[in-house]
Computed example of a mutant assay.
Amino acid sequence: MTDMTDATRVTAAATRPALSGRVKAALTLFVLFALMPPLASALNDPFYVLIGTRILAYAIAALALDLILGFGAMVSFGHAAYLGLGTYAVAILSGFGINDLLVQILAATAMSAVFAAVTGAISLRTRGVYFIMITLAFGQMAFFFFISLSAYGGDDGVALASRSTLLGMEVLKTDFGLYYTTLVMLIGLFFLCHRITKSRFGRVLTGIRENPTRMEAIGFAPFRYQLTAFVISGCITAMAGVVLANQAQFVSPAFMSWHKSGELIVMVVLGGPGTLAGPIAGAVAALLLEEWLGALSEHWKLFFGLFLVLMVLFSPNGITGLLKKLGFGEKQK
């Protein structure tokens, strides 16, 4: 009887799915993120916590973009619009005395869901460069709309009086509190996106990326799946905007310019699209390079561009692909 029990346990352990490479990579990044504030305290340099919060926020946005770019082959060049909607949700609600973070997130995701549904419903009827240009056009429409809002500073933006509260508590008042709150958000959203990509919905979305005609022939409607993914991605990006507004305590249309959309695409491509963990690493690499190169030269964008060209030439799959070449991570099948 004991032997049978042991055999059953061995069989169950053998059939239990192991952690995938992307989850292991993400967990490693999360541990390193968690260690950053204590390290900053040891170095007596709070700047690292501030830049760390910014990295975490952009990691959320890059993760959201990867959901449609890496898994759905939808290159959205107006995705920064949702980042901006998240920031302005904080500014607008704060003006009415509503400072709770959860309420601001709900408002930001609701606004982004509507905007993404309209944008996606129109742009997804096209393909390729036409899709890119329509998403860019909608992004610029949002950009110029908020420039016209003189009540919120127009092109100059508006400063926030204070950071948001969390269920009435001033958890975000300190940089450490905001940092760890953002980290918890990133971890939760990563596992949500991981669950989505591993679900039936995610498999269909990936199948549409590979061959939409075949998926339609076997009974799936590509438009519905792509639009749903587009809306989810926009809502998650808006959550990153809520964090950025609190981190900077400043809101302006610059958060939703096409330059920001390009930066998000760079983060996804740099990290490795279709991996979820890769874009998080891409956000870390892109923002740290920006800080380091910017401190060395005012022409840092030239060197950053050279770095991107070398990455594309020698590792088309970004940091993720480079790590696989070096023997880390999952092997290509």
Rank of each mutant, 00 (worst) to 15 (best):
F255H: 04
M256N: 06
M256D: 10
S257K: 01
S257M: 01
S257L: 00
S257P: 01
K260S: 10
K260I: 15
K260H: 04
S261F: 06
S261T: 13
E263A: 14
L264H: 07
L264P: 03
I265T: 11
I265P: 00
V266K: 11
V266T: 15
M267T: 07
V269N: 00
L270S: 08
L270N: 05
L270Y: 05
L270T: 12
G271S: 07
G271C: 05
G274L: 01
T275V: 06
T275W: 00
T275R: 03
T275C: 03
L276T: 05
L276R: 02
L276K: 01
A277L: 01
G278L: 00
G278P: 02
P279R: 06
I280F: 03
I280W: 01
A281F: 15
A281Q: 12
G282V: 04
G282W: 03
G282M: 04
A283D: 02
A283F: 01
A283V: 04
A283M: 03
V284S: 11
A285I: 14
A286G: 05
A286V: 14
L287S: 09
L288A: 13
L289I: 05
E290D: 14
E291W: 03
E291C: 02
E291K: 06
W292Y: 15
G294D: 10
A295I: 01
A295Q: 05
L296E: 13
L296P: 04
S297T: 15
E298N: 14
E298R: 14
E298D: 12
H299K: 15
H299L: 11
H299A: 15
H299G: 14
W300T: 10
K301C: 03
K301Q: 14
